[in-house]
Amino acid sequence: MIAFRMLDQLSRNWGWIALRGVAAVIFGVLAFAWPGVTLVVLALFFGAYALIDGICALVAAYRGREGSTPVWPLVLIGLLGVAAGIATFLWPEMTALALLMFIAFWALLIGIAQIAAAIRLRKEIDNEWILGTSGALSVLFGVLMIASPGAGALAVAWIIGGYSVAFGLLLIVLSLRLKKVADRMAPKLSAPV
């Protein structure tokens, strides 16, 4: 029952998930388009993306609060995103290593939350692997960033760009699947009891 409520909340908020995906793709394309920019400018791009992603997650949590399904994972993701965005704007001159670690742990935590959601929804939806794969991609990205923080700014820009585009595309695909679920569930939810 909890998984059904979670699926209902996710499917009703499929547009916010799509927006998160689009923001990630845009951020990734910008990282590819300007790989030679200073890490400070890249940090500001990341800050804008993290802030938008966090706000979208908080809006989804707010909209889903009426149900009995816990919204704390979305609130946690949202608060982490907003905090990452604000911290990046307040201290853009952070060292490359500190910024990379911040991004790495942010991706790691988001990935773990998405894998947990995919496991919880595995019996409720088809292709839950999309959510799990985006989470695994985030975890892998975070681990790689922690393991090799000394990579040059150009390599970091390409890694971040590739991660963001892949993550964003997976979120967009997930949102389209959730829209189908929402369309399928709408008649059931509005039918008289």
Results as ranks from 00 to 15, higher is better:
residue 103 I to S: 02
residue 91 W to N: 07
residue 132 G to I: 02
residue 138 S to Q: 05
residue 163 Y to G: 03
residue 35 P to W: 04
residue 175 S to Q: 08
residue 21 G to D: 07
residue 30 L to A: 13
residue 182 A to D: 14
residue 146 I to W: 09
residue 131 L to T: 03
residue 77 I to Q: 07
residue 172 I to G: 06
residue 40 V to A: 07
residue 102 F to E: 06
residue 146 I to M: 12
residue 121 L to W: 00
residue 46 F to Y: 15
residue 180 K to Y: 08
residue 102 F to I: 05
residue 82 V to F: 09
residue 186 A to F: 05
residue 98 A to N: 11
residue 150 G to T: 13
residue 169 L to M: 12
residue 101 M to G: 08
residue 131 L to W: 08
residue 85 G to P: 02
residue 31 A to H: 04
residue 75 V to R: 03
residue 6 M to K: 05
residue 60 A to V: 04
residue 44 L to G: 03
residue 14 W to P: 01
residue 138 S to C: 14
residue 119 I to R: 11
residue 90 L to I: 14
residue 104 A to M: 09
residue 147 A to G: 09
residue 182 A to W: 14
residue 185 M to C: 03
residue 42 L to K: 12
residue 49 Y to C: 03
residue 113 A to N: 12
residue 1 M to E: 08
residue 104 A to T: 04
residue 181 V to L: 15
residue 169 L to T: 11
residue 14 W to E: 11
residue 100 L to C: 02
residue 25 V to A: 13
residue 144 L to S: 11
residue 63 R to D: 03
residue 55 I to L: 15
residue 47 G to C: 12
residue 146 I to Y: 06
residue 96 A to C: 03
residue 8 D to W: 04
residue 22 V to Q: 08
residue 9 Q to N: 07
residue 63 R to C: 04
residue 65 R to C: 08
residue 51 L to C: 11
residue 3 A to P: 01
residue 168 G to D: 04
residue 27 F to H: 12
residue 168 G to Y: 15
residue 81 G to V: 10
residue 45 F to H: 14
residue 62 Y to R: 13
residue 158 W to G: 12
residue 96 A to D: 06
residue 36 G to H: 06
residue 33 A to I: 11
residue 36 G to A: 11
residue 153 A to Q: 10
residue 47 G to S: 15
